[in-house]
Design a binder for these strands. Structure first.
Lengths: 159, 159
DNA sequence: TATTGTTATACTCTATAACTATA
DNA sequence: TATAGTTATAGAGTATAACAATA
């Protein structure tokens, strides 16, 4: 086990900095909280952005589809949908095939909003990862995707 | 700007998956929430672990030192210290040089607990990053540290 | 009986600001 | 006046469980 922990100090318990999880959390928290701050200027949460982007491609998703694709519970996704409906970015309709279910559709206003939001996401990426070399960006992307594949997280969390 | 966004679909707004921030968040959230779950079995939060590990090395820190090294406010660190004192892992004393301040010391019980907690952190790292190759682990560590250096986060957040 | 979705409740985490006691 | 630390308050986010409607 010791072998994969990068030893900085051989005496005593492992350092915070010896764990990859520590660096991942440090960088991810900074990148995500800045992204959240940028979105919050428009009163949008990261979960709302993610849901909008998913719905934009996958029109006609049910709340339960959206929840599982985002790694959230149905109770949590229900609140996110409430907020998107309040913004008039999403409309929900009865599912003719299953009376218990709902079908979620992005409204015209929602469809107009997505490119603006995706530009905010683009800018956030450019700000934090632009200073890296192209090789570094390619490498970290590949490794992160590899980790996600190994653990079977293809369509899990985000928020 | 487009150049650093990995285009998956050239039509329309950028994909979630085109952003490095998305993959970073996905992987970090999974790794950190599993770590938090493992610690919570012992009623410990990630912030408490981080504080203990910092105090273990830097004996005699003040609450404000700890707060800034963890990227938390003084109000937030105060609650973390309360919990560590309730566990009898940390004792605080008057600072003879400044009556407003406090000096935080890890107790014997706290000193005994740290190696156990650091093993939990080790195991979490092994679980998530052990399946990578040594080259991949080295590469992602180097790139994450590079990002932290570029943006001046040497001693920032963690929770 | 099981499932979809909503709602009510509670909990954790944290930031902000008011407050106290020193400096 | 400014600073260190605490406390009170509030908000975000989410999980859990109870619930209504439908399968």
């Amino acid at each position: 086990m010791e072998s994969i922990i990068q030893a900085v100090n051989n005496d005593g318990p492992s350092n915070l900095e010896s764990h990859l999880g520590y660096w991942l959390r440090l960088v991810s928290n900074q990148v995500s909280s800045e992204f959240a701050r940028a979105l919050s200027l428009r009163n949008i949460s990261v979960a709302e952005w993610t849901a909008m982007r998913r719905l934009y491609d996958g029109e006609g998703l049910k709340p339960s589809d959206l929840a599982s694709s985002m790694g959230m519970t149905q109770g949590a996704i229900s609140k996110v949908i409430d907020k998107l409906e309040a913004k008039r970015w999403v409309d929900s309709f009865d599912d003719h095939f299953d009376g218990r279910s709902r079908v979620l559709l992005v409204s015209d206003a929602g469809r107009e909003a997505v490119p603006t939001l995706s530009k905010i996401a683009d800018q956030n990426d450019v700000h934090f990862f632009g200073p890296l070399s192209g090789r570094e960006r390619k490498a970290i992307r590949k490794i992160l995707i590899h980790i996600a594949e190994i653990h079977g997280w293809h369509e899990i969390p985000t928020t």
